[in-house]
Design a protein around this nucleic acid. Structure first.
Lengths: 224, 224
DNA sequence: CCCAATCTTGACGAATCCTTAACGCTCCCT
DNA sequence: AGGGAGCGTTAAGGATTCGTCAAGATTGGG
């Protein structure tokens, strides 16, 4: 769950923000002043910090600078002040976005999404691990016994398709049309050749496949 | 110099934006409609795109989506429409920031800086060291055997891209469109020439590359 | 205007990959 | 038992892609 720190000295607004964000699946921590906020931020990493500039104990810009000395966490500023100077000051201090009150919850949520989209690692590509080898989709890499396994482009395409659909049966037609194009959906000989290559490179016992399984008469299946 | 694409159908505003941005050191390209903008974006990589939503030929959201299909370039939206729905739509389509008219140049510039700060690489580990050479991203320098290696601008661009994505496979298309612009994504001959240059300057054994590896049929990879 | 550095382009062997065909195996049906 | 169908394996060509070189085009500075 995405951890968010909300900093605001107005109890009512803080409560509204907390409920709204929680309703949209965020894990919300709150703080009512600058020192509490800095303490919380130092103890736990947040995906984003929503910061109201009108705090009782510290200047908002100072809070931003303090946060920035320790981390690059995205900061979304809320403020009642519309002047250009205030915005420039906050943004140049290290804020990522600046919303002026009053604002609708939809806009806040949309800006939050935009900010998280930009800052969250695009490392969503999963790494599939088995007892004998590892497939890293993002890096296009297969490692076995600490050594990299060299795969040809077509071998990779077939493996990728299987690995992206673990435990799921893929018919020969599906694999062929996905890898070679819809026109090749008949000639299953390609596929047998490449399954053999992959097994030779990945399976500990080629004769008794453990991961790249044949489903007789239908197709193949990857078993993690 | 930072390349910026400004898209606006109002000639006056376009002119003002261009002059303002150029005065602050940006390299400005302009477009007056959606199709021109998409064409420009496909031929040259920009650090950021400033997009007015009120275009004559295309819906603004459509332009954003089209841009997003091809790249993750930061998009800053200008709009006369203040409604929450418009903002949400643009932001969720893939925009990174949304400014409503009228806006001051200071705010635009500050938001631009904030966006670029977030977007440009953090340079957390600007020095990449291998057993044979050192690449200092911040200083634009490569050192080998205590001597500086002279790289041409294009050689540097290619090396930088590879080094910033260690271990990750970069396809020829990715490298070509990053370094030469999206329009050159087909002619892989450039790349082969430059990989050869880099290997000659960096690899201890040019015939058996240890750092700049070829992944046949797909692309290249930097192995630290 | 010329020079030097850089980029582009084409060509060529070399390396790699894809396709194809052949053959052995198992399973199942006749 | 025989034979056919589907799958696994292997190896050899032919096609594609890669590395390399060098010459022409382009750019930028003096």
């Amino acid at each position: 769950m995405t951890a968010v720190l909300v900093v605001d000295d107005a109890p009512d607004l803080l409560k509204v923000l907390k409920i709204t964000l929680q309703a949209h699946g965020y894990d919300v921590t709150t703080a009512a002043d600058g020192h509490t906020a800095l303490l919380a931020a130092s103890q736990q990493p947040f995906a984003v910090i929503i910061l109201d500039l009108g705090l009782p104990d510290m200047d908002g810009t100072t809070v931003i600078r303090e946060l920035r000395t320790a981390s690059r966490v995205p900061i979304l500023v809320l403020s009642a002040r519309h002047s250009s100077d205030d915005k420039v000051e906050a943004l140049d201090a290290g804020a990522d976005d600046y919303i002026t009150k009053p604002f609708g919850p939809d806009e806040l949520l949309a800006r939050l999404r935009a900010l998280l989209r930009r800052t969250t690692d695009p490392e969503q590509e999963p790494v599939v691990v088995t007892q004998d080898f590892t497939v890293d989709l993002a890096k296009h890499r297969v490692v076995r016994d600490r050594n990299e396994v060299r795969l040809t482009p077509t071998e990779w395409s077939v493996l990728e398709l299987l690995v992206r659909n673990p435990e799921k049966l893929l018919t020969q037609q599906q694999i062929l049309s996905e890898v070679w194009g819809p026109a090749y959906a008949k000639d299953a000989n390609y596929l047998r050749v490449y399954m053999a290559q992959l097994r030779r490179k990945l399976e500990p016992d080629t004769a008794n496949p453990r991961y790249l399984l044949t489903v007789a008469g239908l197709g193949y299946r990857f078993q993690p």
